[in-house]
Design a protein around this nucleic acid. Structure first.
Length: 242
DNA sequence: ACCCATGTTCAGCT
DNA sequence: TAGCTGAACATGGG
């Protein structure tokens, strides 16, 4: 479910609720549900992997983490909703998500969101240059720099630009870094397109793959970087250069 | 049945 | 104190 492009789909799917009034709000989220009741949804927004359901004076922030899901006018038979919004005739249910109420959505910098029209590539490069010793695999997952990028996008983009995940930022030439950032955004939109088609996994070049489609070399799976996340590389195409 | 996963935070340790 | 590790969250697919 996660990664930025998937959140764009969520936003599109629940946008028809803009203008609808919440009649009742319930669930096991640790929030004051009464703050949501009798309020109209004014906007649906996203920031990276975060979803915002905006109301007058208050916003619901939802993060799907690894296993989060949602249903429109349907309920899961076995598990309770963390948050359930009841409208006159419809309902919106969220499962296994983090829910928070926040006053102001603008604390999130849209210029750091790879799926935003306000995405600012120059700003991302500036942030990267400030952390020269950080490995690129970790920087790509840094939500303050690349909000919305997850482990799949990380793996695919590193393969596309033939960069070893453990390359430190200071060892990446300017032109390569620029290209990398371009590919992050480009692949994220490809991800969105494929996800909508239901064909995402068909287009993976590194993530979960056995062989490199460029050179036929074996793809290896490593657990590297700060979070020891699964990282797939072609050792032939993505050699570590100092 | 078992293992793994598109994520993140936090407790507890060195 | 900083940095690392593992747990926790809890579901679903292969």
């Amino acid at each position: 479910m996660p990664e930025g492009p998937s959140l764009i789909i969520v936003k599109e799917n629940i946008s028809p609720f803009i203008g609808s009034k919440i009649i009742a709000a319930k669930g096991y989220a640790d929030i004051d549900f009464s703050l949501l009741e009798q309020k109209k949804i004014t906007a649906i927004e996203t920031w990276g992997k975060h979803l915002f359901i905006c109301l007058k004076d208050i916003n619901i922030e939802i993060h799907f983490r690894m296993f989060g899901s949602y249903l429109i006018n349907e309920r899961k038979p076995k598990i309770n909703a963390k948050l359930s919004l009841q409208f006159a005739k419809e309902e919106l249910n969220f499962y296994v998500v983090d829910v928070k109420l926040i006053k102001d959505v603008s604390i999130y910098d849209k210029e750091a969101d790879v799926m935003s029209e306000e995405w600012n590539a120059a700003k991302a490069i500036k942030k990267l240059r400030e952390i020269p010793d950080v490995k690129i695999c970790d920087a790509l997952l840094d939500q303050q720099i690349f909000s919305g990028v997850g482990n799949i996008i990380k793996n695919e983009v590193l393969w596309l630009v033939k960069l070893h995940p453990e390359t430190t930022i200071k060892n990446i030439p300017a032109s390569k870094l620029k290209n990398l950032i371009k590919e992050v955004v480009n692949y994220s939109y490809e991800f969105l397109k494929y996800k909508k088609e239901g064909t995402l996994s068909k287009y993976w070049k590194a993530y979960n793959q056995k062989n490199c489609s460029r050179c036929k070399h074996k793809i290896v799976k490593l657990y590297i970087g700060k979070g020891k996340r699964a990282t797939y590389i072609c050792e032939n195409c993505q050699k570590l250069k100092k």
